[in-house]
Design a binder for these strands. Structure first.
Length: 185
DNA sequence: GATGCGATTCAC
DNA sequence: TGAATCGCATCA
C-alpha cells in the first residue's frame, strides 16, 4: 500500500475528509479502514475550535499538515483530528469511525467490548480502542515504523450534516462509506 | 479563582 | 434521559 505523505493534507479540509475514506490508519500495532470522517475549516466555520479558541489557532500556525490534534471533550473522550494546511486554507479532519483490521485483541481489551462493530464506531470509541490520548497531541501521525495512513481503493461515499455540533449545522461535511456497518450511529 | 460549555458514550 | 468530568475561555 502507498503511504500518504504530508502533501495529501495540503488541500482543503473537505477534500481531505472525503478522499481519506477507504484509507487504512495504522497505529501502535492496530489498524483499521477509515469509514467515517468530518471536516472542520479554520476560517468561516463556527463549529471549528479555531473559531472560539485562540489556542487552536496557534496550533494551526505552529504545526505542519499531518500533525495530530487530539483533545478531550465532555471531560471524558479523546477525539482525534489531523491538521490540514495548504493554499486552499487550513482546518481539521476528524476521524469518526474505523473498520477494525488488525490488532483486534488489543482493541477489544482496551474497549471492554467483543463485538467488532462496537470497537471503533464513534470518535471517542476509536481513540480508546487504539490507545490514543492527550500524550499524542501534536504528534506526527504520517511517518513512523508503526504509524501511518495508507491509500485504499476508491469507495462509494455519502455526504451529510456533521454530528453533535450546535453551530454551522447545515454544512454537509460529514462523509462515510456507503453501506459500511462500522460507522457511528 | 469561579463558572460555563462542549466535534460523546453508556447505563439507568 | 442524564451523568460523567476535564481543558480552555471568559469574567470577576
Amino acid at each position: 500500500m502507498e503511504r500518504l505523505a504530508a502533501s495529501f493534507f495540503e488541500r482543503s479540509p473537505v477534500t481531505c475528509a472525503r478522499k481519506i475514506i477507504g484509507a487504512t490508519f495504522t497505529w501502535g500495532g492496530c489498524s483499521g479502514r477509515i469509514v467515517e470522517t468530518e471536516a472542520y475549516a479554520a476560517v468561516g466555520d463556527e463549529a471549528c475550535h479555531t473559531f472560539f479558541r485562540p489556542g487552536a489557532r496557534a496550533f494551526v500556525d505552529a504545526h505542519p499538515a499531518g500533525t495530530a490534534y487530539v483533545y478531550l471533550n465532555y471531560g471524558v473522550h479523546w477525539l482525534f483530528n489531523i491538521l490540514v494546511k495548504g493554499p486552499e486554507g487550513a482546518g481539521f479532519v476528524l476521524f469518526r469511525a474505523l473498520e477494525p483490521l488488525s490488532g483486534i485483541g488489543e482493541m477489544t481489551a482496551r474497549r471492554g467490548k467483543s463485538k467488532l462493530r462496537e470497537l471503533c464506531s464513534g470518535p471517542g470509541k476509536l481513540t480508546r480502542a487504539l490507545g490514543i490520548d492527550g500524550a499524542d497531541h501534536g504528534r506526527d501521525f504520517l511517518c513512523g515504523p508503526d504509524t501511518g495512513i495508507f491509500a485504499g481503493n476508491p469507495v462509494e461515499i455519502v455526504a451529510g450534516s456533521r454530528i453533535g455540533i450546535s453551530r454551522a449545522v447545515d454544512f454537509p461535511w460529514r462523509f462515510h462509506e456507503a453501506g459500511n456497518p462500522h460507522v457511528s450511529r
